[in-house]
Design a protein around this nucleic acid. Structure first.
Lengths: 346, 346
DNA sequence: ATTTAGCACTCTCAATGTGAGAGTGCTAAA
DNA sequence: TTTAGCACTCTCACATTGAGAGTGCTAAAT
């Protein structure tokens, strides 16, 4: 593979830039009109031939303009795009919105999904922060009716889970509170193994409750991603390449179907570092359903403690620069929020 | 308007049935082939002329088969469809799934959305049960770090809300527990007015907490619909009438955009009785974005206490019978679950 | 060696034309 | 009131055509 000259790299970048905007094949003449380069169209044509031979461009048909190939986009993302940041006032607006959302994780997630969808004009997903090693924090036992008891468990990372428990025989609220206090005293900050090692020190009621706590803990571990928040799915349908809904349908199904999404996430973001942003272009040969689109994926949270994933789905012809910086910025924000919350919980 | 003969009503029903399956205009010949009626195609043609004049059928163009008009569907839904029930084993399967989901409201919602989408082959939405008159049930105060306190509030209807509170000065966990107990003792089962009438009996810390409780209560009242669960959005994209994604996009946006959805729900289901199922055909002249599709909407919950909405979006050419019975069945199930949960909470 | 102007060539897309076929409405008989 | 027969209408799929955009190549210019 020949290395590209500086001008060829420029031309590639400009073609991608133009194509992202217009969704039309880009011709040599269109380029010089758009950007007033100091070369003629013939020169550009020569370079385009080489870029085509290098595999970065292709012609939809003989003598149409050029369109970037997947390889072309990859080269662009890796070598040409550079690091951009969102404009200052955009960042301020977003930060402000998160600030207004208070301490509500649920609202953070919805907001993050909304911001991603809006900024990237694509479909977005955000998974709720999941404890990588869930540690127990607090338990409330609330008598409801007869032998029915509502358990409310609080875990590190701000996760609150509820569970219903049916006792063998009625127990007073005082007894329940005592039991909860006992458990809180001994179990705070422990993980599953820690709790298991403590058995023997509890009475029958407490044993029952502990069993449920351990089960809940197991359940939290198994799920690759907790709640999934989505937004902007209809943005994708507005793109001209998805006018024939078949490929749009396939792509959106990946976001909609939990099993597909878990497969995708577990094989990409969840194996990467916290600040990496991954760009999947055209399914990368692995995800057939994503053939005609791209995804930008990131990860947020506190490494080793609580993490979640976030991402954007759009056409291959996507404004990668903007999308990547949005993902980077939002994931940073979410990380800060989550870490702050963890610190407060101690 | 002439009243239809029995045979004309039969023909209308058969045409709708056929068209729902095939998505192709239905001709007189196709009808007799499909159903072996004891009349000739000519007779059917005569009847079809009358049905067309009555406004229930139309021809996409001269000498094509007939297609039901929106009025045709309305007549069908009101007069011809009758009450059907889901097959016994389907009902059993669904019930079983809900049984397995335990007491997790979150999981109920996801499951309901999934079942609706799957059964109707359309896009579904379910809103979480919202207290019509929220009553306070239980409070836990958990010291996290220094002056930071995590409030976990439990409300009638199984709603659990969390909130962060920053105190003026550090307070021990014991003091917090005492305060929480005081509040629990005095406020259980009260609504906003009841809590407001109790002020004066609390110390400064408790006053602060009560203020947040009242605020939360206000917030819960304002939201028309709490969390919205969606599923099967991509089912809609598979329908041939939505191959050109423009109208699909408009319709799905109604489900996606909170403001549109709230407008829709507040003007339909939320004003209806608990067991009514409403069928909106072609936007009913009110919702432009729903021009090419239909919605079947229902409501579940305990009247006056906790309610939520559920619905299905599909093409106008929808299997209304099946969809209506699914909505009816699922809403009944959810109502039972919610009522049961309320009873347990007392 | 690289760039440029000129030009013939290729291929798509939109517009137009055509024929087969499906389904009708009408008429007259049953 | 129903039915058979038939001429008629309109769409859809397919083929044909011309304009236009954009190319690649060649030969001249820098």
């Amino acid at each position: 593979m020949t290395t590209l000259t500086e001008r060829q790299r420029l031309i590639l970048a400009l073609i991608i830039h133009t194509y992202v905007e217009t969704a039309q094949p880009v011709g040599s003449k269109a380029l010089i009109e758009r950007y007033t380069l100091d070369t003629s169209s013939a020169t550009i044509r020569n370079d385009m031939v080489e870029l085509t031979e290098a595999g970065y461009l292709r012609q939809p048909y003989t003598s149409a303009g050029r369109v970037p190939t997947e390889e072309g986009y990859r080269y662009f993302v890796r070598q040409l795009m550079g690091q951009t940041e969102l404009p200052m006032n955009t960042r301020r607006t977003i930060t402000h919105q998160f600030y207004q959302a208070g301490r509500d994780v649920n609202r953070w997630m919805r907001l993050a999904a909304s911001v991603l969808a809006h900024q990237s004009q694509g479909a977005s997903l955000v998974t709720s922060p999941r404890p990588e090693s869930a540690r127990f924090k607090h338990l409330s036992l609330i008598s409801t009716h007869g032998r029915q008891v509502l358990m409310v468990m609080v875990w590190t990372g701000g996760q609150v889970r509820q569970q219903m428990l049916t006792l063998a025989e009625p127990v007073s609220q005082e007894q329940l509170s005592t039991a909860a206090n006992n458990i809180n005293m001994l179990c705070e900050g422990l993980d599953a193994d820690g709790i298991a090692s403590l058995s023997g020190q509890f009475d029958a009621l407490e044993q029952d409750v502990l069993k449920l706590i351990r089960e809940e803990q197991e359940r939290m571990k198994q799920v690759v991603s907790g709640e999934v928040y989505r937004d902007g799915l209809t943005n994708v349908l507005a793109e001209p390449e998805f006018a024939e809904s078949e490929s749009a349908r396939k792509a959106l199904r990946v976001l909609e179907e939990r099993s597909m999404l878990e497969d995708l996430l577990s094989r990409t973001v969840l194996t990467s570092g916290m600040d990496d942003v991954q760009v999947l272009i055209g399914g990368e040969g692995t995800w057939e359903d994503l053939r005609d689109c791209s995804m930008v994926l990131g990860r947020y949270g506190a490494p080793g403690l609580v993490t979640g994933a976030l991402g954007v789905l759009g056409p291959t012809r996507m404004a990668y620069g903007r999308t990547v910086s949005t993902i980077r910025f939002v994931s940073g924000l979410l990380s800060d929020l989550v870490i702050e919350m963890l610190a407060e919980e101690n």
